[in-house]
Simulated scan of single mutants.
Amino acid sequence: MNKLLFFLFIIFISPASSIEFTGKFIQGHFIVGKTENNARILIGKKEVKVSENGFFVFGLDRDRKNDIIITKIKDGKKEKVIKKVFKRKYNIQRIDGLPENKVTPPESVYKRIKKENNKIGEARAINSNLTFFKDRFIMPVEGIISGVYGSQRILNGKPKWPHYGIDIAAKKGTKIKSSATGIVTMAEPDLYYTGGTIIMDHGHGISSIYSHLETINVNVGDKINQGEIIGTVGSTGRSTGPHLDFRINWFQTRLDPMSIIN
């Protein structure tokens, strides 16, 4: 091989960056990264965990407008990768003429809601060394997707929180599978908004939430393998019919579950 061919061969096989990504840089999406061992990774200004074999993970907010900067630091050298984040269009539904108690909860439950939200926030803030996040997730239940990520309702002229998961309609009592291997960090039978609720930790800030369950078959601290039955579909909490509300979070950033399944 002459020197020119050898040079061209080196250029062809040399990567533009020593950081690889799995996932799409779209609002609401889940991204798994792979880098060199012992490297440090910053997502924007936030340093994230890197596993012993170089895996890390992060997510893009529903409404993120700016590009994202990923910085690798190793041996005192910095490498920056800038990725454009593409916007999405979300479904907006306006409903007027509803009774006020269907739009805003009564003041008598405000303390309860705050307490429960704090517990959910604590579960989502866990930053463990588990690496189950890097494995493909599966659909937790068979059914019709009746609600999608990012959609928003405006009730009596008041914008409500966007929907941060997917709703899967199924018969009451339908078995729910764990979407991925993880550790149970919450197993509550009766939260105000979400009723029977399970939260599982998959490592590095990635958690999954299963809501409106009729029954719960796991306890906090249990290690659950992907595909194991964790509960059954119900209509508990503020729900209008039997379904599973399935969500994925990267710490406090809410992600589209379909981006981790697909």
Rank of each mutant, 00 (worst) to 15 (best):
46 K>Q: 13
91 N>D: 11
53 N>Y: 08
9 F>D: 13
61 D>A: 14
201 D>H: 04
185 T>L: 11
114 K>F: 13
3 K>I: 14
76 G>S: 02
75 D>R: 07
213 L>N: 01
227 G>V: 07
217 N>T: 01
21 F>V: 06
51 S>A: 13
216 I>W: 01
157 G>K: 12
189 P>I: 03
19 I>V: 15
108 S>R: 10
195 G>V: 00
172 K>G: 14
84 K>G: 02
210 Y>R: 02
184 V>Q: 00
59 G>C: 06
21 F>I: 05
14 S>R: 12
64 R>D: 11
171 K>F: 09
251 F>H: 12
48 V>K: 10
180 A>W: 00
141 V>P: 09
215 T>D: 01
191 L>P: 03
2 N>A: 07
57 V>A: 02
209 I>T: 08
99 P>V: 14
240 T>W: 08
253 T>M: 04
47 E>N: 07
74 K>W: 01
135 D>G: 02
163 H>E: 02
59 G>S: 06
31 I>M: 07
248 I>Y: 06
187 A>E: 05
233 V>Y: 05
193 Y>E: 07
112 R>I: 15
55 F>C: 05
257 P>H: 05
233 V>M: 08
26 I>E: 10
65 K>L: 04
218 V>N: 03
133 F>Y: 15
5 L>I: 09
141 V>W: 06
222 D>Y: 01
63 D>M: 14
238 R>I: 15
198 I>N: 00
16 A>E: 13
28 G>D: 08
4 L>V: 15
25 F>R: 11
131 T>V: 14
151 S>G: 09
236 T>G: 05
28 G>K: 03
137 F>A: 12
136 R>W: 07
111 K>A: 13
233 V>G: 06
31 I>G: 03
211 S>I: 01
225 N>W: 08
215 T>F: 06
227 G>P: 02
161 W>L: 13
62 R>S: 04
130 L>E: 10
237 G>N: 10
78 K>S: 10
23 G>L: 13
65 K>E: 05
238 R>K: 14
164 Y>L: 15
215 T>E: 07
91 N>M: 14
213 L>Y: 03
248 I>M: 14
112 R>D: 07
78 K>P: 03
207 S>R: 00
33 G>M: 00
14 S>N: 12
202 H>G: 00
165 G>P: 01
104 T>W: 12
54 G>N: 07
123 A>Q: 06
98 L>G: 00
73 I>A: 04
113 I>K: 04
226 Q>G: 05
7 F>Y: 13
164 Y>Q: 07
259 S>E: 05
245 D>P: 01
52 E>H: 12
138 I>Y: 10
42 L>D: 01
12 F>P: 03
12 F>W: 15
201 D>M: 03
205 G>C: 01
169 A>S: 12
234 G>R: 04
145 I>V: 15
217 N>W: 04
224 I>F: 02
138 I>L: 10
153 R>F: 10
62 R>W: 09
133 F>S: 00
62 R>A: 06
8 L>V: 12
120 I>D: 00
79 E>R: 11
214 E>R: 02
117 N>Q: 15
133 F>M: 03
249 N>V: 02
249 N>A: 08
135 D>S: 11
92 I>A: 06
173 G>S: 13
167 D>N: 12
185 T>F: 07
43 I>P: 01
164 Y>F: 15
27 Q>T: 10
25 F>I: 11
101 N>C: 10
230 I>K: 01
178 S>Y: 06
49 K>N: 12
